[in-house]
């Protein structure tokens, strides 16, 4: 468990997998001896929020603690959006470019090449559709919930929706994005003929593995940090209206 007093450089030194979190929080390196708390505050980041996310990333069994109540859902939502942006602008194009390069240099048959490239094109479409479903439906719902919870008398229409919908329903849809990548990884190492450019092939596999891990961790953050917090707020809003 990472602690706010620890020097940030040690945290990153010892937990290499947190590296992709830095750009999402807009945290610049050159940490010197500054603590996690100091680095966060210098960059206008809520330290408790950073700790919740980082700890959820590091520990699969991590259960969010008191830190949960210390940040707003809009903070959470903007973090999720910046993670999506990272996938769309950086992670996916990076691996796509390498896959295309690997294919163009390979001795694969036309059929094998189109198997991989068609797969990746379709995967990208599904991936985008998944993210936009979140951005267009789930995240606005979360923000609306936060807004309604701040009001003395929440909108009756919203309450009606709450009685049959909960953030828990969104949870189950959520571990799927990495599955297809795993199939692709397996296809490459097991079924396709070996690639001449071994280094490039390894880079593709490394990128795929990193993206899979990131997607699992991101789903964890949503399921372990966002969902409980939203569920608490749903219950709060409902309990207030049922006692009126």
């Amino acid at each position: 468990m990472i602690n706010r007093e620890w020097p940030m450089y040690r945290v990153i030194l010892e937990n290499h997998q947190l590296l992709p979190l830095l750009p999402r929080f807009n945290l610049k390196m050159g940490f010197g001896e500054l603590s996690v708390d100091e680095v966060c505050r210098n960059h206008g980041v809520n330290t408790d929020f950073f700790l919740e996310i980082a700890n959820a990333y590091l520990d699969e069994l991590y259960v969010p603690g008191e830190g949960l109540s210390l940040f707003s859902l809009s903070t959470m939502v903007s973090y999720i959006k910046s993670t999506h942006k990272y996938y769309i602008d950086i992670a996916l194009p990076m691996v796509e470019e390498k896959i295309n390069r690997l294919m163009s240099r390979s001795a694969l048959s036309k059929k094998e090449i189109s198997l991989v490239t068609n797969f990746f094109n379709d995967y990208k479409k599904d991936f985008m559709a998944h993210l936009s479903q979140e951005e267009e439906n789930i995240l606005p719902y979360v923000l609306e919930l936060e807004r309604q919870s701040a009001q003395d008398l929440p909108d009756p229409e919203f309450i009606q929706k709450l009685q049959t919908y909960s953030i828990h329903e969104f949870e189950k849809e959520h571990d799927r994005l990495e599955t297809s990548l795993k199939h692709l990884y397996e296809l490459i190492i097991k079924y396709l003929p070996p690639f001449e450019d071994l280094q490039l092939c390894h880079q593709v596999l490394n990128d795929l593995a990193a993206l899979m891990k990131d997607l699992v961790d991101h789903a964890d953050v949503e399921d372990k940090v966002l969902v409980p917090r939203v569920a608490d707020l749903e219950a709060l809003v409902l309990s207030r209206t049922s006692t009126v």
């Binding site: 068609n118 797969f119 379709d122 599904d126 599955t179 297809s180 199939h183 692709l184 296809l187 079924y191």
Partner: peptide, 16 residues
């Protein structure tokens, strides 16, 4: 069941 929509995704699933 599989969370795979596309034909290309199903094809790779079927191969592996």
């Amino acid at each position: 069941k599989l969370g795979i929509k596309s034909v290309s995704g199903l094809t790779i699933y079927a191969i592996v």
